[in-house]
Design a protein around this nucleic acid. Structure first.
Lengths: 202, 202, 202, 202
DNA sequence: TATGAATGAGAGTTCATTCAT
DNA sequence: GATGAATGAACTCTCATTCAT
């Protein structure tokens, strides 16, 4: 019989992850020290290590959680849409709205940094690959739907197009997270959407 | 009367920078320790500090050197081309060829990591901003030329288009540097070129 | 809820300071490395840095603590004495007794070294100036009392006399700390007392 | 047959010593790095090591040279004086005049620092002891002359008196080198002279 | 479970000294 | 004799992780 409820533990985990995201976003993963998270969360160092085995694990779980949330929300929103193009445009819309919060900008930074960091460590690489494929697949399916319904060009390679989509998005986020210019980010994203949609549709 | 020739010193600097690029590329800037560079270059730690004031300075000089080289080479190649579209396509071609070397893949990684790293330190931020603007301007001018000659759509915002160009490129490089799949990178880049060119031209 | 009591922490601090004093005394401030203090105190390097921000801060706190102790003790002893001359003689007595311990000899050395060291760094200079003035003032007041009560010559400049007092003391300590000859130090100090007292009194 | 004259070498040595004194005075012995001396003297690092075996040796020779110069000059000045008291007063006068130059203030600092530094190393300790005794003896002889001629109290212990003299001087110099207040230094020295002379004379 | 003091293996950097030219 | 580039041991300080309480 556990001393504290599962709910209590889950909340504490979430609390730590939120603080970690904030710290990683502000200072970067490598530059963040555990004491930063202690200070921000007001949870003791020992307690943090009760919930997570290492600093790296905090990072990983953070990523996992955000990825899961992204797909849950996207799935839900897109469920009501029938056309592939609408779904695609909805994703563009989401990124346009969502990413302009301070919190999200930091989250993006964290995720790019981790990408670089993770690409040198085999155990992480698998994890990141899986995650990457999930994102790729998501767009692949939409493109395939569009091709099936005749909305999109039949001769597109869905996987390649999907890669391009995420490359554009990550590139834009990379620049934005560095430059911090909301207006220009949004503006660029609009034009990217136009370019992309006009390219894939018939 | 200098002890060694300027050429000798220049070569030594270059040698250190090459080793540093290799190490940074393999392990990342933050994860690379000076002793890695010592081992790779077989130059003593003290000697390295005779040529560079700090690990950060090595990074900066690396960036500077590569940037300069890029512009020199690009300028030269493009000098013989008269049409804006040709110039643009030449840049696409260059990235397609160039980036597939192992060395270049690492260089890209280094440059993206530094971008993240630098975005939290004011002194570096200025440096990176300047560098960024140089790249932006380069494409801006080509777009403007294309608009003036009637090759490209008149209603494009050259600066925005340039941002998009670099975002796409950096995004693609980011993915490629992580995934390391040459074929797919090249393929994606081809399609990006097609999409981009067809979008900007009349 | 603190993990350990304030008393525990205070004792640990004191323990570190004692080891530091011993090391600084034996090898000098600059020549002492943190590992010397680690070895002597059997407290880990990290723990030392939990209590003090830097090697310099250890030094400063050491100085502060000893200065405070000196004034507290002196104040207490002199409280029961009514005549200025008695107070002055009491200080002489104290130095004669006190300084012959090994520990004190080292402390003196440390304090002189720090004086030289600090005289080149502006932040320390202020600190040392303040401390110096505290010592000067202490004797100034006694001289003024003596002048007011008619025990001491009215035409003395109390501040100058005070400076001379401390110059003589520091000079004597400097020689002693180098030569380590207790007997001669004590003997010299007796004669200095005689010379000084006979000069200031009516 | 030497390639360069002995005179040339001697000048070069002197030049290095002058620069070293300047550097040591400004930054302290330990804080001075060889490159400071290189810069100030415009003599190459290698050349400096041709003339001196180590940084420490530069220090030692500096001390030796200044000590020799002091005694030579003092001997010469005092040769023309017949009375012990006059000789003593002449030494006081010398210190009053001499020490107020910037150069001398630094020299004093150097000498005190070295004293502390040297007191922990046996090889230096002997050297410094010898030097110390030379200074002690110098005043001892004057006191003895004064006692023989009846100018000074017969019951003084010349060695102790001499120690006191140097302690006062070094203490005063120590304070002055830190505080840098010429006026007060001079003023204190005047009063010390008065106190000392009146104490030793009949 | 929670706490935060303790640990110690590194990290970047410095600098006296050497030695090939 | 002169040069200054090269060397590498040594230094201060950091911080992820552990563990007694």
């Amino acid at each position: 019989m556990p001393k504290v409820s599962a709910k209590y533990k889950e909340e504490k985990r979430t609390h730590i992850l939120e603080s970690a995201l904030k710290c990683f976003g502000e200072k970067g993963y490598q530059a963040t020290i555990i004491d930063d998270i202690v200070k921000d969360s007001t949870i003791s160092k020992g307690a943090i290590y009760n919930y997570f085995a290492s600093k790296e694990e905090i990072y990983i779980q953070l990523l996992q959680k955000r990825t899961d949330t992204f797909f849950e929300e996207m799935e839900q929103e897109n469920a009501s849409l029938s056309r592939a193009k609408e779904k695609l445009m909805n994703i563009f819309k989401r990124f346009k709205k969502q990413e302009l919060t301070e919190e999200n900008q930091q989250a993006m930074r964290v995720y790019i940094e981790f990408w670089l960091y993770g690409s040198r460590q085999d155990d992480l690489k698998n994890l990141l690959s899986e995650r990457y494929n999930r994102f790729i697949d998501y767009i692949v399916k939409i493109i395939q739907e569009g091709q099936a319904s005749g909305e999109m060009k039949a001769d597109l390679d869905p996987e390649n197009i999907s890669r391009i989509f995420w490359a554009m998005r990550d590139g834009n986020v990379l620049h934005y997270s560095f430059l911090g210019e909301e207006e220009q980010y949004r503006y660029a994203w609009d034009v990217i959407e136009e370019m992309f949609i006009s390219y894939v549709q018939k």
